[in-house]
């Protein structure tokens, strides 16, 4: 059976520690851009932790919410790309073929979640920082749009491994770098087509919601509402 990769973000578990952000930097060769570029809004993060405030002292409230590519089934980014650099992969991911990208940035405008990062310049890793680069992931050059791939290199290598061993992928055998690093297990990755996977189970929770679900983008990332102390017994 074909896989349908999904991620569940349990907002009640997320502590806003941003381990996922660094994990993604490391795993996917996402560059740091430096102070001057960050100052004009060009910091690149495939996953970011949004925080929102409500209320004021002495009763302020804060929520953390990791936002990454929602891997929409009806992705606004895919239709608009004139060269098929953004496209729907066979496993239902929003693929990004870097080599095919000419940098119209249309996809980034179309994306309601603003999760696409653009290489305004060639990324630089001052020697020997270049040695940290993950050889399984390409380094994107200037003018290319990039985004969360659900760590497609991990998916591919797990699939190749399973194929070599002539077996199916097991739930939990494969996870994304962000979910791997998440200490409080707020991020859970897996196959939504496997009804017994942890991610399927969580995605059907009554706390589940889609980010801006009303837009009809059909995301494969599901958020579990934070809930309150007293509500716990209902979930």
């Amino acid at each position: 059976m074909a896989h349908k990769w999904g991620l569940v973000v349990d907002l009640d578990r997320c502590t806003g520690c941003e381990a996922c952000v660094v994990a993604c930097h490391a795993e996917n060769n996402v560059p740091t851009v430096g102070k001057d570029q960050a100052a004009i809004g060009r910091a690149m993060q495939w996953i970011r932790v949004e925080r929102s405030w409500e209320g004021d002292f002495p009763n302020p409230k804060v929520r953390f919410q990791p936002v990454l590519c929602q891997q929409c089934d009806a992705a606004p980014c895919e239709a608009v790309c004139p060269t098929y650099a953004s496209y729907h992969t066979e496993e239902g991911l929003n693929g990004q073929a870097y080599n095919r990208c000419i940098g119209t940035r249309f996809c980034a405008n179309a994306c309601p979640y603003t999760v696409r990062s653009f290489n305004f310049f060639n990324p630089s890793w001052q020697k020997p920082l270049n040695l940290q680069l993950n050889p399984d992931v390409s380094v994107r050059s200037v003018g290319i749009m990039e985004k969360c791939t659900f760590c497609v290199q991990r998916i591919k290598s797990a699939e190749i491994q399973a194929e070599a061993e002539k077996r199916d992928l097991k739930d939990g055998e494969l996870t994304t770098a962000c979910a791997q690093s998440c200490a409080s297990k707020a991020l859970v990755f897996g196959d939504l087509n496997d009804p017994n996977s942890e991610v399927s189970r969580l995605a059907s929770s009554n706390r589940a919601a889609k980010l801006m679900g009303e837009l009809g983008t059909k995301p494969n990332v599901t958020y579990l509402d934070r809930g309150a102390w007293q509500d716990a017994k209902n979930s």
Partner: peptide, 15 residues
């Protein structure tokens, strides 16, 4: 030569 970053566009103002 340098990259389109010499423009003032950024994320999210890509155009």
């Amino acid at each position: 030569y340098t990259g389109i970053g010499v423009w003032g566009i950024n994320s999210p103002v890509f155009w």
